[in-house]
Design a protein around this nucleic acid. Sequence first.
DNA 1: CGATCAATTGAGTGTGTTCAATGTCAGTGG
DNA 2: CCACTGACATTGAACACACTCAATTGATCG
Lengths: 242, 242
Amino acid sequence: MAAINKQSLDQSRLECDTCGAKSCCIGEGLTNEQLQGLKKITTNHGPFQPGQAIFKMEDSFKSLFVIQSGTVKIETVSPEGSNLVDGFFFKGDLIGMEAIGGEQYLHDAIALEETWVCELPFDHVESLCSFIPRLQHKILILLGQKIRHMNETFLHGRYLSAEQRLLLFFQMLCHKNVITKNGPSRSLTLPMPKGDIASYLGLRAESLSRALGKLQSDGIIFNRGRTIEFLDIDAVLKLACK
Amino acid sequence: MAAINKQSLDQSRLECDTCGAKSCCIGEGLTNEQLQGLKKITTNHGPFQPGQAIFKMEDSFKSLFVIQSGTVKIETVSPEGSNLVDGFFFKGDLIGMEAIGGEQYLHDAIALEETWVCELPFDHVESLCSFIPRLQHKILILLGQKIRHMNETFLHGRYLSAEQRLLLFFQMLCHKNVITKNGPSRSLTLPMPKGDIASYLGLRAESLSRALGKLQSDGIIFNRGRTIEFLDIDAVLKLACK
DNA sequence: CGATCAATTGAGTGTGTTCAATGTCAGTGG
DNA sequence: CCACTGACATTGAACACACTCAATTGATCG
């Protein structure tokens, strides 16, 4: 793992009870006493700068990580040598679950923005689960959700056109509250390069670019560098295209 | 769930200690005493005939199922109405994990051959986990494996050609010991129609047929109806094609 | 034996890819 | 201030692979 320094960010945001990721963390719903037990086994790390690794494939699997703030991509290297982006994760997401039961991590986890994470040593979590049924339940639920999410994204995504995949991606961002839906602007500055999005969607950068062009000429979005403006958010959410 | 009768099959194969799926079941590695605890919460069901459902999407999620004998596919109905096969499962496999944390099952589970299953009510399993750390560990491992398997199959599969996907499918069968690797014949009678395989691989039946034809003309397999003979098993395992 | 469903084969089409060229933007140094 | 650089993004033209649709063959079963 990369060298770690604690600095800058308001320390209070890293405490469980005041953590920004509190509501979606695995500790959600625990009593204060239980939360203290959980807090004992965790450690905070950050800030990771864009491009820095939170963990790498070569690292042996020891911990899960909750993203307290920032954005992270996970990626592997394909047999041909190019990078395959397997997922994007945001505040409150738990990463590293793919490695449970394995020796090493399955991906590199790379920060896309300045990012803080909370480390949960897995064997400690497991022990704690035996004493806190609610925690065990929560972990199982999260794993089930992860499976369902992969199922939707990858299984059903593969029958969609480039345009539909892109819309699905925007929907995901919306669901993660990354797009400011309420304001009048409804815009978004992508935390990741477009090449990463293309890879994640199983497309070439060129195809993604054309899909973006198509949506723009249809008046659904306005695409300017890393900023996307959503002119017709309903069209995006309906996936009614094509 | 479909009507259930116990009959025919040698009853002893349904007992935990003599079950054909014993070595890969979630009970693997438990003490005899613990196994008795597990046995108390399970019930056997079968035989399911080809086409019969073990569970359906409409059913509310209550249980996981271990396949004691037979073969099962899981499938969903696409928005357009066609069936999408999401997986094949064999003796010893645990099915229903996608539904953990959800209200209903995510798929229909359909028997492809005469099939017997062992039902594990999930809330009972969860309670038992708190008392048997090894069981909790095993479940977590299985969920992790499931995630890894989906990751490999669907994420990396989507960059492969029809031929490569087919070879990957054969490798999977090999890994599941469905192909008789040792005998001189090295043949296989597919338990599922080719259309199901095509769907699983994200292809049309026609494309699968052509891929099979290509492998045959390359002298790697001999394709005759539902029987496949592997003339060059090494080529299959190497995925060196294309 | 015809009926039905699965599997195969053929011809033509289309979506995304490939490869190469051009454009945009931020950062750097003269 | 402007030219240069390098990473990222866009655009164009030709191609490839799997798709679509239709016709044919094969297998199974009453």
